[in-house]
Design a protein around this nucleic acid. Structure first.
Length: 386
RNA sequence: GGGGGUGUGGCAGAGUGGUCUAAUGCACCAGACUGUAAAUCUGGCGGGCUUGUCCCUUCGGUGGUCCAAAUCCAUCCGCCCCCA
C-alpha cells in the first residue's frame, strides 16, 4: 500500500487531501481518475505528458483512467494562467486537434483500459436552466479570488463572462463523471478545488481528491514548457529533434525530467555520469514515442554529429541548375538560409563548411562533383549538379 | 450614449521632429569553451548589391504638413478601461 502511495506521490506538488486519498486507496475500490484536456492546440508536448504519466501510474495500479476530452470547453478556452482573453475555436479546429491528441495520448496510456469521455455529451444538453443552476452555486467574489482574474481585474484588463463560466463547467464534468480523483497542473488548482466544491453541492459526499502536478520547465529550464516561449519538445518532433532537444537541456533540468517523465529510480540516476544520464533520458523518452529502434538510431546519429563532429548518415540531396555558382547563392537555393545577407553573415562567421572544410569567403563554386554543404552544427545538404 | 487610454521589430518595452534600421531585456542564429549541454565570452539578429561613413524597405492603415516624421495634423481601423 505504501509503495503505491509513493508512486502516486512522485513529483506531485500537492495532494488534497492525502488522508482522503489514503482512505480511498485502503477501501480497495477501483478509483475513477479523471484527467481533462482541452484540445485547443494542434499537438501536445512533453509538458502535457506529465499529467498523462500520472494517470498511467493509476492505470497501472488497477484504477480506472478516465481521459476527458474537453471538446465543449475547448471552444470557450480555459483562462487559467492566461493574461488575456483567448479567442474561440471553431468546431472543425477542435475536431482535428482531438485526433492528434488521442493518437499521442495512447502512446502512453493503454487504450483498452481507458475510458474516453467528451464533455459535449452533457454540457451541450445542460441548457440555460442547467447553466443557471450551476452558476448559482458560485459568486463573482469567489471567482475574483482567483489569482489570474484578480490580476487582470486590477490591471484594467478585460475578463469575459465566458471565462467565469469555465471553472463551473470543468467542475460540472467532475459531477458528470463521478470522479474520485482529478489530476491537473499547478495552474489548475482553483478549477480542481472548485470541482470538489461543486461535487458536494450536487450531493456527492465523497468528493474528488485533487492531485496537483508541477508544470514542466521547458528546454531553457526556467519557464514552463509552452509553445509561446519557444522552449517546447513536441511529441510531433522527429526522433532526432526530440533526442537533440533533450540533450540540450541543462543537467539540473534533466533530473526534473527524470522525476516527472519517467519511472526510473532517481537514486540510480544521480549516481550516473551526467552525460550518460542525459543520453539515457533522451533514449527513454524517444523510445516511448518512436520505439526502441528509432531511439537507438537517434542516439547514434547524435554521437556522430555532435560528439565525433561527423556528417550524418542520410543527407537530403539538392540539385543545382548551374555548374558555377556563388556559395551564398547555393545556400539560398538549397533553402539552408533565407536571405543573402544571412548567407554572407554565416560565411563570415565561419559557420559554413564544404566537405568539412571551413569556407570563409563567398567564393564561386564549381558544382562538378557532389559535395556536402554544412551550415552550423546541424544543417547538412548534399549538393549536386543535374 | 458620454469620457479616457492605447497600437513600435518574434515577444516584452524605450523612443514624442533630424544624430532612428529605432535603446534595453528575452527568444533566436553562428563562433569559442565543454561531458552533448548548461553557464560564460564573442559576433550577429529587415532586404540587396558594385561591401560603401552605399542603396531600398519598416514603428496599426491611408492622406497631409515640413528641407526632414515612429514622433505633428486629419481620417479610418483594432484593442482596453471608466461612467451611464
Amino acid at each position: 500500500m505504501n509503495k503505491f502511495l509513493e508512486k502516486i506521490k512522485r513529483g506531485t506538488n500537492e495532494i488534497i487531501s492525502i488522508k482522503e486519498l489514503e482512505n480511498k486507496l485502503k477501501s480497495g475500490k477501483k478509483l475513477r481518475v479523471k484527467l481533462g484536456v482541452d484540445p485547443t492546440m494542434p499537438d501536445l508536448h512533453l509538458g502535457h505528458t506529465v499529467l498523462i504519466n500520472k494517470l498511467k501510474t493509476f492505470q497501472d495500479l488497477g484504477h480506472q483512467a478516465v481521459f476527458l476530452i474537453g471538446d465543449f470547453t475547448a471552444r470557450i478556452g480555459d483562462p487559467s494562467g492566461r493574461t488575456e482573453t483567448r479567442s474561440l475555436l471553431t468546431v472543425d479546429q477542435v475536431k482535428t486537434n482531438i485526433k492528434t491528441y488521442t493518437k499521442q495520448v495512447f502512446k502512453i496510456l493503454d487504450r483498452k483500459k481507458t475510458e474516453i469521455a467528451y464533455n459535449s455529451k452533457w454540457l451541450e444538453n445542460l441548457g440555460v436552466t442547467g447553466l443557471l443552476n450551476l452558476a448559482a452555486k458560485s459568486t463573482v467574489a469567489q471567482m475574483l479570488v482567483r489569482n489570474d482574474f484578480e490580476k487582470r481585474y486590477k490591471k484594467d484588463e478585460s475578463i469575459s463572462i465566458i471565462e467565469f463560466l469555465y471553472p463551473l463547467l470543468q467542475a460540472y464534468d467532475s459531477v458528470a463523471l463521478n470522479a474520485d480523483v482529478e489530476l491537473g497542473g499547478n495552474d489548475q488548482k482553483f478549477n480542481l478545488l472548485f470541482g470538489r466544491q461543486i461535487q458536494k453541492d450536487y450531493g456527492i459526499k465523497d468528493a474528488q481528491i485533487v492531485i496537483i502536478m508541477p508544470l514542466l520547465e521547458g528546454t531553457d529550464g526556467i519557464k514552463k514548457m509552452s509553445k509561446s516561449y519557444n522552449n517546447c519538445i513536441s511529441l510531433n518532433d522527429s526522433s532526432k529533434d526530440m533526442f537533440g532537444k533533450i540533450m540540450s537541456i541543462s543537467d539540473s533540468t534533466m533530473y526534473r525530467y527524470y522525476e516527472l517523465l519517467t519511472n526510473l529510480d532517481l537514486n540510480m540516476i544521480k549516481n550516473m555520469h551526467p552525460k550518460a544520464a542525459k543520453k539515457l533520458l533522451a533514449e527513454e523518452i524517444v523510445k516511448r514515442y518512436y520505439g526502441a529502434k528509432e531511439s537507438l538510431k537517434a542516439l547514434k546519429e547524435f554521437d556522430r554529429i555532435f560528439i565525433k563532429r561527423d556528417i550524418p548518415e542520410n543527407i537530403e540531396k539538392c540539385t543545382m541548375e548551374n555548374v558555377t555558382l556563388k556559395l551564398s547563392d547555393i545556400l539560398i537555393k538549397s533553402t539552408m538560409v533565407s536571405s543573402k545577407n544571412e548567407a554572407r553573415r554565416l560565411i563570415q562567421q565561419g559557420a559554413v563548411k564544404i566537405d568539412s572544410q571551413k569556407i570563409k569567403d563567398d567564393i564561386i563554386i564549381n558544382v562538378h562533383r557532389e559535395f556536402v554543404l554544412q551550415v552550423g552544427k546541424r544543417k547538412f545538404k548534399k549538393i549536386t549538379h543535374q
